[in-house]
């Protein structure tokens, strides 16, 4: 009986441990996709709530200035993922958003997105120094109001998106076989042009670089932290480059994962946009999120 329990415990540890290893550098709070699937998972859901506050504008000269608009932004995110094989999976994400300013609020469904990942190189516990290498593609469809078509620019309560659909292509490298975790990800993001009020907007090509590190305290507890750099080229209006319109945002995050069973986990994340370094034409905000993940 004792031997059976020992074997079961070892197997459970290996399973949880291997799940800890098969994460990624750009998943969770480190990048765009809140949900990733591990090789042994077929279906998985993500339910997360997040709040962003303390907004400040960062102007073209990198100076903080007054941020008009909502003072609190809440997000409920639902995501579902399906694994086709241990190497490949797709995820769909749908946010529901609430903007608040003093006593006024407005809500809206956010921009839905789809993403797919394929592991070119699978991680192996037999070779812990060989990283997992994933390719990823994604698409976000703009469906919500943005600042370009807001009906109330004084409060911006109806501004829920950027106003531009985006396609992305990226690579994610993750060393997850040891207690110390490390990884990096790089994404190219191409916004699609759109015309508002007779003016054709072409946002610049963007890149998001992510650096992540972490530590596995136990089979049930993992901490990761890292930084993102989002850089975007100049905006064009009717083909004319708008001077000084490039964007830069250095953000930081800290994430705590708790595995409460082999198929369930909780994730708490803290983040700050425009946290350090040079930032331009962006906004600083502080965020906190709590998510529940379950797989089948």
């Amino acid at each position: 009986m004792r031997r059976r329990r020992l074997v079961a415990g070892l197997l459970l540890g290996l399973l949880l441990g291997s799940s800890q290893a098969f994460a990624c550098a750009s998943c969770g709070s480190g990048g765009d996709d809140p949900l990733i699937l591990y090789p042994n998972e077929v279906d998985k859901i993500y339910v997360g709530v997040a709040r962003a506050t303390a907004f400040k504008n960062v102007d073209a000269d990198g100076r903080f200035s007054t941020s008009g608009g909502p003072t609190v932004k809440d997000t409920l995110t639902l995501a579902y993922g399906h694994g086709f094989s241990p190497r490949a999976f797709v995820t769909g994400t749908l946010p529901w958003l609430r903007n608040s300013r003093q006593e006024a609020t407005q809500t809206s469904l956010g921009d839905p997105s789809l993403a797919a990942r394929y592991a070119l190189v699978m991680a192996s516990m037999a070779e812990p120094l060989i990283p997992q290498v994933q390719m990823l593609v994604g698409y976000k469809q703009s469906m919500t109001h943005s600042i370009h078509d807001s009906a109330d620019l004084k409060t911006e309560l109806d501004v829920f998106g950027t106003g531009f659909s985006e396609a992305k292509l990226g690579v994610d490298i993750w060393f997850g076989q040891l207690d110390w975790l490390a990884g990096a990800a790089f994404n190219l993001i191409k916004p699609l042009p759109h015309t508002y009020d007779g003016l054709r907007y072409e946002p610049g090509l963007a890149s998001r670089s992510t650096l992540t590190a972490g530590y596995v305290f136990s089979t049930a507890c993992k901490t990761t932290f890292g930084a993102n750099l989002l850089a975007r080229g100049s905006l064009r209006g009717d083909g004319v480059v708008q001077a000084d319109s490039e964007q830069l945002n250095h953000s930081a995050f800290l994430t705590q994962d708790w595995l409460i069973s082999p198929v369930e986990s909780w994730r708490l994340s803290l983040s700050r946009q425009a946290a350090f370094g040079a930032n331009k034409n962006t906004a600083r905000s502080d965020g906190v999120s709590l998510a529940y993940l379950r797989s089948w």
């Binding site: 102007d59 073209a60 600042i147 370009h148 109330d152 620019l153 004084k154 907007y201 905006l235 209006g237 708008q242 001077a243 000084d244 319109s245 034409n281």
Partner: peptide, 9 residues
Amino acid sequence: MTTMGHGTA
């Protein structure tokens, strides 16, 4: 606001 490509109320 040229740097961000939007107007105002």
